[in-house]
Design a protein around this nucleic acid. Structure first.
Length: 656
RNA sequence: CGCGGGUUGGAGCAGUGGUAGCUCGUCGGGCUCAUAACCCGAAGGUCGUUGGUUCGAAUCCUUCACCCGCAACCA
């Protein structure tokens, strides 16, 4: 009989900067799932890769003064090194710059074009410059902007569009009817209410504003935009439209697309629509997991609040990191990463519970039976509980893993490990060892312990990649003995007696948490400094490269005046906007809307002197016309600070 | 009233109508095989607020407050 297949994917990552621990999270979950399924006998295909096109990459590479492909190659090499370090068992690593992929994307684009699902059009809209909005003819009121009532301009910009609207009904039905498709369920309503029900717009799938991408096959001016370029990797990686599409025939549709919650929208709406247009089966599941926060703050490259996974692995081991990721982030919710919890978890679960259990058991086998695992002789009621738990472990873990609940799966295993520790106390081997009668009983006790450890190690293999084999080595179990596969978990009582244990080194050294925390803080601080430095450099480059010098006559075009805030209130339904009445020395005060509500309260604003750009074209913001702009300084974190004259100056005074 | 989620012992969470539970931390005890580990016990909560339904509400309905996502907005 042919093996059942299992196709699992991570998103393809964007190589615009350094890799961090959040990137590892998705990939490690997928890896555990992939390994789990392999051990269950599935024919698994695990895909990951990188999304390498787009304007941003082009820019980043330019600011580093490197050729684009060269720059990406460097970052991708680093990523592959990271996956190697973390024992990621992917079957294929796809890059959107792979020739195969590029060809396939062009074919797909063609196909959709021929079918009529991609069409060339223009933003044949009437553009209202102040509102920065396109309107269709029917939306116009008396031929003018429905928002601000001003003249609009007929603008045309050519683009290719994907007929997403055509698939609206099918997508809605998919999400409403197939409860398995989008997980977790809470996301289903979010998608339906926010995006699908309001109506899906056709999607612009080409750009002319940059050229780092795959060309539209029949119109070289246009570059294919991310939707069709990136999402299709899941099928092009299998050879779809290629010379050899055996993999595609075998593995598609995907069993799981795993991803962070920020991109489920694209995977649950756009991607299925593309597949529908191609007449291909849809993936069985799109799973959006939560984010891994760092100290309850969103991880971000620019903030520099990232823990370098290379450092973590080096200092504390791959398994410690894998364990954290798989154990700590609950189903469908955000998890939190802190150095302290990381170290505590490593100490308590891995060192104290698991490591120490293995130590004490192997030590006893060595002391009392010359290192040879004894055969069990009798069975008592106390043994029952331990054996029961060990036997139930595999079915329980399986049912959790089927729902992708690694935290609960691991919890199940560690319950057995804890039970084994308790079992030792209940049986008091050190007392048994003192009498002949006791020693007979001790054989059974130690056998039971060794067998529990073996079973736990077997089941831990998809999660931890180093520890289980170390445990097998300690128990004298070789790979070819048939004692390390899932089939050996059906029954407690494998033939391990007679094997020679080797106490060897501790599995996990305990860590002095206070001391290590300090070390990590220092490392982090170092990183922060570097991040800031890098940011500065970037700014410098920007300033010298992209900002051209202007003459005084250009500057004179901008009219700046001192204004005094008379009134200020929040703009309803907008959490960034404040609306102020500002006296700039004119007859009536001006109404100015600014995006500073996060940093200033209306009360604070009143009475303040500010610098106002007075000859800026008015713009309508949230329905209020803003007649100018208040100047603010913005730091690298995006924090805003008002610019104020250092002395009180008459309202309306010129600035310049 | 844009959509959705949340508010439970010091911390992090589980618990959808019937004696309030888990992990960590704290305190006390036990043990010595083991990595100062392991095992046992205790303290600690009027389950955000208001009103209601019910024999009975953390759980259902209602009021308000605060927090967090997403969306919008950010000249």
């Amino acid at each position: 009989m042919e093996k059942k297949k299992f196709y699992i994917t991570t998103p393809i990552y964007y190589p615009s900067g350094k890799w961090h621990i959040g990137t590892c999270y998705t990939t490690i979950i997928c890896d555990a799932l992939a390994r789990y399924k392999r051990m269950q006998g599935y024919d698994v295909f695990y895909l990951t890769g990188t999304d390498e096109h787009g304007q941003k990459i082009q820019k980043v590479a330019a600011s580093n003064g490197v050729e684009v492909k060269k720059y990406i190659d460097g970052v991708v090499d680093e990523l592959k090194r990271l996956w190697k370090l973390l024992d990621i068992s992917y079957d294929k690593f796809i890059r959107t710059t792979d020739e195969e992929h590029e060809k396939a994307v062009q074919k797909i684009f063609n196909k959709l074009y021929e079918k009529g699902d991609i069409y060339k059009s223009a933003y044949e809209g009437w553009y209202c410059t102040p509102c920065e909005a396109f309107w269709t003819k029917t939306q116009l009121v008396d031929g003018k902007c429905p928002d601000c009532g001003r003249e609009v301009e007929l603008t045309k910009e050519e683009s290719y569009f994907f007929r997403l609207s055509k698939y609206q009904d099918r997508i809605q039905k998919l999400i409403e009817d197939d409860k398995e498709f989008l997980q977790p369920v809470t996301r289903q309503n979010e998608m339906l209410n926010n995006f699908i029900k309001p109506g899906l717009q056709d999607l612009c799938v080409s750009r002319t504003s940059f050229d780092w991408g795959i060309k539209v096959p029949f119109d070289a001016k246009h570059v294919i935009y991310v939707w069709i370029d990136a999402l299709t990797n899941y099928i092009t990686a299998l050879g779809y439209t290629g010379d050899n599409d055996e993999l595609f025939k075998k593995y598609w549709p995907a069993d799981v697309h795993m991803m962070g919650k920020e991109i489920i929208r694209f995977h649950s709406i756009i991607w299925p629509a593309i597949l529908m247009a191609l007449d291909l089966p849809l993936p069985k599941k799109v799973y959006g997991h939560g984010w891994l926060m760092f100290n309850n703050d969103k991880m971000s490259k620019s903030k520099g609040n990232i823990v370098d996974p290379f450092i973590l692995c080096e200092r504390y081991g791959v398994d410690a990191l894998r364990y954290y990721m798989l154990r700590e982030v609950p189903f469908g919710q955000d998890g939190n990463f802190t150095n302290e919890i990381f170290l505590k978890l490593r100490n308590s679960d891995l060192a104290n519970d698991l490591g120490n259990l293995v130590s004490r058991v192997t030590a006893m086998v060595s002391h009392y039976f010359d290192g040879v695992i004894p055969a069990p002789t009798d069975s008592q009621e106390v043994d029952r509980q331990l054996i029961d738990m060990a036997e139930k472990m595999y079915p329980t873990v399986t049912s959790y893993m089927d729902e992708m609940r690694a935290p609960e799966a691991l919890e199940t295993v560690f319950k057995v490990i804890q039970r084994a520790n308790k079992y030792i106390d209940e049986c008091t081997p050190w007392i048994l060892a003192k009498t002949d009668e006791g020693k007979e009983r001790l054989k059974t006790v130690l056998y039971n312990l060794c067998e529990s450890i073996r079973m736990s190690a077997v089941i831990l293999q998809p999660f931890l990649t180093q520890t289980p084999s170390k445990i097998f080595a300690k128990l004298g179990i070789g790979e070819d003995m048939g004692l390390t596969g899932f089939d050996s978990l059906q029954k407690f009582g494998a033939k391990i007696d007679g094997l020679k244990v080797d106490k060897g080194e501790q599995l996990f050294q305990r860590i002095d948490i206070a001391k290590e925390l300090k070390v990590m803080d220092d490392i982090l601080e170092e990183q922060l400094k570097k991040a800031k430095q890098a940011k500065k450099e970037e700014k410098k480059v920007e300033n010298t490269v992209t900002i051209e010098q202007i003459g005084i006559e250009d500057f004179a075009k901008v009219q700046l005046k001192v204004g005094k805030v008379l009134e200020c209130k929040k703009v309803e339904k907008a959490d960034k906007l404040l609306c102020s009445q500002i006296d700039v020395g004119e007859e009536t005060p001006r109404t100015i809307v600014s995006g500073i509500a996060k940093y200033y309260t209306p009360e604070e604003m009143v009475g303040k002197q500010v610098i106002v750009v007075t000859n800026l074209k008015p713009a309508k913001l949230r329905g209020i016309e803003s007649q100018g702009m208040i100047l603010c300084a913005e730091d690298e974190n995006g924090e805003l600070a008002l610019i104020t004259p250092s002395k009180s100056v008459k309202a309306g005074s010129e600035v310049g």
